[in-house]
């Protein structure tokens, strides 16, 4: 049995309590929610935080609701809740696509969207989905809250805009009409991290792509937001040629690294191929 190094444990009763614990305990404290990234790292002794602040009782952060023209997801919402949310599936099928291929039911029962985004693993799926959905993220500190664009959230592998005494509180997805979205992933085996994955959200108007988001996972130091691919799609009528052009740009603009999941050339190919497939499905869903 792999066992972690010694640590102290605190259980927060409110967001304010969690924030004050973080403030008091300093940089060697870590928040723990589902724990499906942090605990394995601790057991392998790759991470050895001195304090854990357990936020699993912060039910105030556990919700998925429509509010002020946005779909708002509390950071403590579990993967399983995202997968079971009819509202989320109807407005952003990309999240249901992604959740079906994230890890396994055991992980999805416990893991949270906030934990997934804050872990900032370059291969993490919800980050790419949020990039495609043009999500905005609410970060709270003792001094108040601030809202960050998804494109500014990740600062590199395992690094985010969330400060040491802050907490990611909410994910906001702007709701617009004539939307369609999809997520495509290649994995070596069910439950494995992506070899590469692509998420696409489109918003149609008069038969053309009024706006679009393209996000990639596992092909960069963090989730890749494909601005050039989005640019070439925006305002155009969907066609295979158009998708090819966007796919080429997605492949060109990512920066995969070779590892056991595959060489750079293959991952770059997948970035394009999966972008093309996600575009087809997203547009079909928007028009369907």
């Amino acid at each position: 049995m792999q066992v972690p190094a010694p640590f102290d444990y605190e259980r927060a009763t409110s967001v304010e309590h969690a924030l004050s614990l973080l403030e008091r305990l300093g940089p060697e404290a870590r928040l723990i929610a589902g724990g499906h990234s942090l605990l394995p790292m601790m057991k392998l002794r790759l991470a050895a935080p001195e304090h854990l602040v357990d936020i699993n009782d912060l039910h105030e952060l556990d919700y998925i609701r429509e509010e002020a023209g946005e779909l708002r997801i509390g950071a403590l919402a579990r993967h399983r809740e995202l997968l079971e949310s009819e509202l989320l599936g109807r407005r952003f099928p990309i999240f249901h696509d992604a959740e079906r291929v994230i890890a396994d039911p055991l992980v999805r029962n416990r893991g949270t969207i906030g934990g997934a985004l804050c872990q900032a693993d370059p291969s993490e799926d919800l980050s790419a989905a949020c990039a495609a959905a043009h999500a905005r993220l609410v970060i709270r500190g003792l001094g108040g809250e601030r809202v960050v664009e998804m494109a500014d959230f990740h600062r590199g592998p395992y690094e985010t805009a969330v400060g040491p005494s802050e907490i990611l509180a909410e994910i906001r997805l702007p709701l617009r009409e004539a939307a369609g979205s999809a997520y495509e992933k290649v994995e070596r085996r069910t439950g494995d991290w992506a070899v590469a994955a692509a998420g696409v959200c489109v918003w149609m108007s008069d038969g053309a792509i009024a706006d679009v988001g393209v996000g990639l996972a596992a092909v960069g130091s963090s989730a890749v937001h494909c601005a050039r691919a989005e640019e070439v799609l925006r305002g155009e009528r969907p066609s295979e040629e158009l998708f090819d052009a966007a796919a080429d740009l997605a492949a060109a603009d990512c920066s995969p690294a070779a590892d056991q999941r595959g060489p750079v050339e293959y991952k770059r190919h997948l970035a394009g191929e999966l972008t093309r497939r996600a575009l087809r499905r997203a547009v079909a869903r928007a028009l369907g």
């Binding site: 394995p40 392998l44 396994d104 070596r188 085996r189 069910t190 439950g191 494995d192 991290w193 056991q260």
Partner: peptide
Amino acid sequence: CLNGSFMDYLIPTAKE
């Protein structure tokens, strides 16, 4: 060794 855990050493699941 590059395969020191079940994250890296893949064994099949019912899905495969």
